[in-house]
């Protein structure tokens, strides 16, 4: 799916991954994020009332980005990505990331999407994105 001709409104892509505690540690490290809710289970639960340590808010954007950039290959350009964090995700639980095509502009090559992440508890993040694809040859 790397040309505008290959894309139609309603097309949906998704995949599942399970963030691990080691992944969350690495993500906090590379983003210089010392927030204890991402690595201190006792603090996260006893002080802030979360069920466990939490997957970082930006992590959800990263997996949306990864899905779209993988799906459309190096010729596709991610131009917009927006999301709101609407629920919590915890490590060692499956997290599904998905995208659905909502519009295709064949003259500009822009494809717009609804994007989301969800766990067994429901939506964790949701928003919109846009990718610019090359015109068909």
């Amino acid at each position: 799916m790397n040309s505008i001709d290959d894309v139609s409104v309603g097309d949906t892509v998704s995949r599942e991954q399970t963030p691990t505690r080691a992944q969350l540690f690495r993500y906090s490290a590379i983003t210089w994020n010392p927030h204890r809710i991402h690595y201190d289970t006792k603090y996260a639960s006893d002080v802030e009332g979360h069920p466990d340590v939490l997957v970082q808010a930006h992590f959800h954007g990263a997996v949306m980005q990864g899905l779209l950039m993988d799906q459309f290959g190096p010729e596709g350009q991610l131009t917009d990505l927006g999301w709101q964090n609407v629920g919590r995700a915890i490590p060692d639980e499956p997290l599904t990331v998905g995208a659905e095509v909502t519009s295709v502009n064949e003259s500009t090559g822009h494809v717009k999407f609804d994007v989301w992440t969800e766990s067994s508890e429901g939506r964790c993040a949701e928003g919109t994105a846009a990718v610019k694809l090359p015109a068909s040859e």
């Binding site: 010392p34 927030h35 204890r36 809710i37 201190d40 603090y43 002080v47 802030e48 970082q56 808010a57 930006h58 954007g61 350009q77 991610l78 131009t79 917009d80 990505l81 927006g82 999301w83 709101q84 964090n85 993040a125 928003g127």
Partner: peptide, 29 residues
């Protein structure tokens, strides 16, 4: 701070006993 965050990273004087949450982002690339 107790939550591990740097008190200097906020644009306001953040009270100590609050919960901070990322609400989302809109990126134009």
């Amino acid at each position: 701070r107790e939550d591990g965050l740097d008190p200097n990273q906020f644009p306001i004087d953040m009270p100590s006993e609050v919960i901070l949450m990322g609400g989302g982002q809109d990126l134009t690339i």
